[in-house]
């Protein structure tokens, strides 16, 4: 878990640098400060359990073990990217790892996670869905529609609210009548716990409990992780809405040195070993950036690929509808 958190931190640092060099375009939302949430939660479930997240999604991809080079190449818009340069930073996904995306319309993936959980329940598979979103999403109707259906049909989905105190630039007080988001689960008779999102073990424990609850057929569970992003909402954020003293206080709770200290204190590892992990991860990230830089751009002629899984071409009526040019085929 320590290595995974360091991976995310270093990945984000390099992504920010590449953004400054205009190698990464569009919007870039960094997960720095929140690493313990994705890492603790993903480590607490099976590898074949399903994950959906929001647009600040690099952390989920890396926590689930998606290829680091392919993640970086996706940010660079290259053909070797996780989604062949079609999705970008906000839309990472890897179906082979059961990571079903980065979803960039706030809250939209909340009922999608419930629907996936229904498919698991329908086939009586013992799998759960982790559905991550932020405090800001709880103001959206789709959040309530998703929770309502998940509770109504007793579905195996863990809703994980990353409460980082801000919905973009709006403070909690400006966006919600309650500051503890877990209260909102109560109306749906959904059990809920709050955990320290700056402590990977706290998140791990909470999500483990939640997943066991779901897997045993008792229905959905709500986990609220109290956390903080050390950087702005996106690279374009001047951070006028919060004071530097607050950011400094939260930085003292940095989940990475905190977990590192824990490991050393309990003699699980040594400071030297941790330093080695940091060096190895940094080398891995430099390699990922080099890979992304050297990767080919997508072929311009491939721009209309994947609009449909089963393209239908009425312009060529004598031809049967063809799956040609679609190696992924009609998934599912």
């Amino acid at each position: 878990m320590y290595r995974k958190m360091v991976q995310i931190r270093h990945f984000e640092d390099h992504a920010a640098e590449a953004y400054a060099q205009a190698k990464v375009g569009g919007f870039l939302h960094l997960y720095i400060g929140e690493e313990a949430v994705a890492v603790g939660a993903v480590a607490a479930v099976r590898e074949d359990d399903h994950i959906l997240g929001h647009y600040r999604d690099h952390g989920y991809a890396l926590a689930r073990g998606c290829d680091v080079k392919a993640c970086m190449a996706e940010l660079f818009g290259r053909e070797t990217g996780l989604c062949h340069g079609r999705g970008g930073s906000m839309h990472l996904a890897d179906a082979t790892k059961h990571f079903w995306g980065g979803h960039a319309i706030v809250g939209s993936h909340i009922p999608i996670g419930a629907g996936m959980a229904y498919a698991m329940q329908y086939r009586e598979e013992p799998l759960v869905v982790l559905d991550f979103f932020g405090d800001g999403a709880t103001g959206n109707g789709i959040f309530h529609e998703g929770l309502n259906m998940a509770a109504l049909w007793n579905l195996p989905v863990v809703f994980i609210c990353e409460n980082n105190l801000y919905g973009m630039g709006a403070t909690l007080a400006e966006e919600s009548p309650v500051s503890d988001m877990m209260i909102k689960a109560e109306g749906y008779t959904m059990p809920a716990v709050q955990c320290d999102g700056m402590d990977v073990l706290s998140v791990y424990g909470a999500v483990q409990q939640a997943a066991e609850h779901c897997r045993s057929g008792k229905g959905p569970f709500f986990v609220e992780a109290m956390t903080y992003r050390f950087r702005g909402h996106s690279m374009a954020d001047p951070e006028l809405y919060r004071d530097k003293e607050e950011v400094r206080r939260w930085r003292e709770l940095d989940p990475i040195p905190r977990f590192g200290d824990f490991l050393v204190q309990h003699r699980i590892t040594s400071p030297q070993e941790l330093a080695e992990v940091n060096e190895e991860v940094e080398a891995e990230m430099l390699e990922a950036v080099r890979f992304a830089d050297d990767s080919p751009w997508p072929d311009p002629d491939s721009v209309d690929r994947w609009i449909y899984a089963k393209p239908i071409n009425p312009e060529a009526p004598e031809e049967a509808p063809s799956m040609a040019g679609d190696p992924a085929g009609a998934a599912t």
Binding site: S108, P111, I112, G115, M116, A117, Y118, A119, G146
Partner: peptide, 11 residues
Amino acid sequence: GFAVGAAMGGL
């Protein structure tokens, strides 16, 4: 949204 998820889950 739920139906999209169910479709992704194989239904």
